[in-house]
């Protein structure tokens, strides 16, 4: 086997794996967005004055952050089978039988826990004077949150968010363990069909590095955009 042949095969693998790129992106984007919406509520609960919501939110965050994502995915996908009759009577079995649904649910619940901590940290960093000022001009609590506190919290959280997006793109690889043929799933399939695992998995690695490089570059631009109205320290 010639040296050039390896590169030719890696190029072939890249072409084959590119089919999985939209699937990986779909998994990541769907779970990040669902996780984000849920995380706003969880972050609010984490900062709540009331004991019960704070306690529940803390418990949720603790459980999802200190156990492996693979366990969470298997628990939802395979574990739901143990309660099949219950899910059938609730009319939910059609969903839980679906690998895509279970993967996105597990990824979303997982990233929600991490995002909630990020958002709560961002909210804590908003200067209290800003909230008081907003209240002083007669804004409602809800309006203070939406127009004053939350946008500033996001700006604080954004650098850490780029990290979370990269971690989620990496995490989508675990969906391959429950039959989803995204980049890693396709690579596994191709490696066992061609008996050339080294080239195939290396090609998959290149695809992930390109994806995550694009994410990092995008976030650098986004940060610059969000800081456009912030006075520059000189």
């Amino acid at each position: 086997m010639g040296f050039l042949d390896h590169f030719a095969f890696i190029a072939e693998a890249l072409a084959h794996l590119s089919v999985g790129i939209p699937r990986t992106i779909l998994l990541a984007v769907a779970s990040l967005l669902i996780g984000f919406v849920l995380a706003i509520g969880v972050a609010a609960a984490l900062l709540s004055q009331a004991f019960l919501p704070r306690w529940i939110a803390n418990g949720y965050v603790y459980i999802f952050r200190s156990s492996p994502l693979l366990v969470q995915i298997f628990l939802i996908y395979y574990g739901s089978g143990q309660f099949r009759s219950l899910f059938e009577s609730l009319g939910l079995w059609g969903l839980f039988r679906e690998a895509w649904f279970c993967a996105i649910l597990a990824l979303a619940l997982n990233t929600c826990a991490y995002q909630a901590v990020l958002i709560a940290g961002g909210l804590r960093a908003v200067p209290w004077g800003q909230i008081e000022a907003a209240q002083a001009v007669g804004m409602s609590r809800c309006r203070v949150f939406v127009t004053v506190a939350f946008p500033q919290a996001l700006r604080h959280a954004l650098p850490a968010y780029s990290n979370e997006v990269v971690l989620m793109i990496k995490a989508t690889a675990l969906a391959s363990t429950i039959t989803i043929l995204e980049i890693t799933g396709l690579a596994k399939q191709m490696a066992s069909e061609t008996y050339r695992p080294f080239e195939v998995f290396a090609a998959a690695g290149l695809v992930y590095i390109a994806l995550n490089g694009a994410v990092a570059a995008g976030f650098t631009r986004g940060e610059r955009f969000l800081r456009r109205n912030v006075a520059q320290r000189t």
């Binding site: 990269v166 989508t172 695992p197 080294f198 998995f201 690695g205 992930y208």
Partner: peptide
Amino acid sequence: GIPEMLVIYLVFFG
């Protein structure tokens, strides 16, 4: 930038 699972596949099978 690479999923840990892929690293395991790469080292183990590759």
